[in-house]
Design a protein around this nucleic acid. Structure first.
Length: 110
DNA sequence: GATCAGGCTCTAA
DNA sequence: ATTAGAGCCTGAT
């Protein structure tokens, strides 16, 4: 890891970008990493989001993988994918575990 | 410091 | 469009 930035700082930069994703939109891990100035750290984004506090107001569910699919398999009390449920609640069309990035990806086409 | 695993991504079938 | 393999970087043994 770089000497000029603590891991906590990297996490902060990542979360700062994730917090900017607008309601009803999604972004990929790689996209987040890139926007945070950490182009190769897509997996770190996943790591950071996984270790978030549940009280956090970070919209972690708006982050999906590059294929437009949900990587997280965590389920809620209904046996449904939590991330999928949250996205649907925001009006994001999730078919199976896949999302139409052309339509819902943040900053896609402006 | 070596080794393993992870909410990834790119490329090739 | 879906599946495999290789590459990449960090955090935890």
């Amino acid at each position: 890891m770089p000497q000029n930035a603590s891991s906590d700082e990297l996490a902060r930069q990542i979360l700062q970008v994730v917090a900017l994703i607008p309601y009803g939109k999604v972004a990929s891990y790689g996209q987040i990493a890139k926007m945070a100035g950490l182009p190769k750290h897509a997996r770190l984004v996943g790591y950071v989001l996984k270790h978030l506090d549940q009280a956090s107001e970070i919209p972690w569910h708006r982050v999906i993988n590059s294929q437009g699919k949900i990587s997280l398999s965590k389920l809620d009390g209904q046996g449904e994918n939590i991330q999928r449920t949250k996205l649907l609640a925001e009006g994001v069309m999730v078919i199976g575990d896949k999302i139409n990035l052309k339509q819902y990806q943040w900053m896609n086409g402006g």
